[in-house]
Simulated assay, not measured.
Amino acid sequence: MITYEYPFNERIRTLLRLEDLFQKVGSFMQRDGSHEHHVALLTLFEILDVSGRADLKMDLIQELERQRQSLLAFRNNPEISEQALNAALQEVEQASAALLAMTGKIGQHLRDNDWLMSIKSRASIPGGVCQFDLPSYHYWRHQEPGARREALLGWLQPMLPLRDALAIVLRLLRASGRPEHHVAANGAFQMMLGGSSSQMVRISLKLDDPYIPEISANKYALNIRFTRPDSDHRPRQSDSEVEFDMLFCNL
């Protein structure tokens, strides 16, 4: 199956973008190549920009506390494993405590590093990080992979509480609700939502189905146009019936 997610508000959009960026930086950091570590550093700069919302940390702390209170309501429930419940509570409490321990603005340690900020400013210029523009960065990229990885981890480490907290929130969000099977006639599907409080919708199709959902939605209506790529990967409206599963998510 391949799943497409469409967030209904800016808060969930931000969390999904950060999740994607943290996954990328982790993947590229594990490799040894200089080019991969360059991409990892640029991805760190993207995390810095996306996480710049002043209320992001407090939003996550409040959501984790809300989930903690929800979990506590299952205490002494014979249908709930106490061991599993305690593990979930511990995970939420640890993530919340780590967020509370973060001081200052998210990523401030990167902003305070003039060398990193010089790379960030040059990276916004096409070809701006060539060796003649930033010889010190050229030198860094020629260090041993282990040394570069250690430096990248040091720059990433202070932001890991943010990664861990949003991972919990998104996991709980995705686990909410139940998927329902639908069929889009002639590649088009519409549903009135009537002011729904859902925060995200997930559309799942079989991996070998050549359809791409183009989603537009708000709390009142959902519209999906299924397209299929031509030989140049340009999307064309499908005129066939498309079967898919849909899940509305809400915490």
Rank of each mutant, 00 (worst) to 15 (best):
M1T: 11
I2C: 02
Y6W: 10
P7M: 01
F8I: 05
N9P: 04
R11V: 00
T14P: 06
L15I: 03
L15M: 14
L16S: 02
L18A: 09
E19S: 12
L21G: 00
L21V: 01
Q23Y: 02
Q23F: 07
K24E: 10
F28V: 01
F28K: 05
Q30S: 11
R31A: 10
G33D: 13
A40N: 00
L41T: 06
T43W: 06
E46L: 06
E46S: 13
E46C: 10
S51N: 01
A54T: 11
L56G: 09
L56C: 05
K57L: 12
K57R: 15
D59L: 10
Q62T: 13
Q62R: 14
E63M: 14
L64C: 13
L64D: 15
Q67S: 09
Q67V: 08
L71H: 03
L71T: 09
L71A: 11
F74P: 10
F74L: 14
E79N: 15
Q83R: 11
A84D: 05
A84F: 08
L85I: 08
N86K: 14
E91D: 10
E91I: 06
V92N: 08
E93I: 02
Q94L: 13
A95S: 14
A95E: 05
A98Y: 10
A98K: 14
L100C: 15
A101V: 04
M102H: 11
K105G: 07
I106R: 02
D112H: 02
D114F: 06
D114R: 11
S118R: 06
S118N: 13
I125D: 13
I125M: 12
I125Y: 06
G127K: 02
F132N: 08
F132E: 13
P135Y: 12
S136C: 05
H138L: 09
Y139S: 04
W140T: 02
G146Y: 12
G146W: 10
R149G: 04
R149E: 15
E150Y: 04
A151R: 15
L152C: 07
G154K: 04
L156A: 05
M159N: 09
P161V: 11
R163E: 12
R163S: 12
R163Q: 15
D164A: 05
A165H: 01
L166C: 07
A167R: 15
L172I: 07
G177S: 14
H182Q: 12
V183Q: 08
F189H: 05
M191H: 07
M192K: 06
L193K: 09
L193D: 06
G195K: 13
S196N: 03
S197I: 13
V201W: 03
R202S: 09
I203Y: 11
S204F: 08
K206G: 12
D208R: 12
D209H: 06
D209I: 00
P210R: 14
Y211H: 01
I212M: 04
E214R: 02
E214G: 02
A217S: 11
Y220N: 04
T227L: 10
R228N: 01
R228Y: 08
S231C: 00
D232W: 06
S238E: 04
S240P: 07
D245G: 10
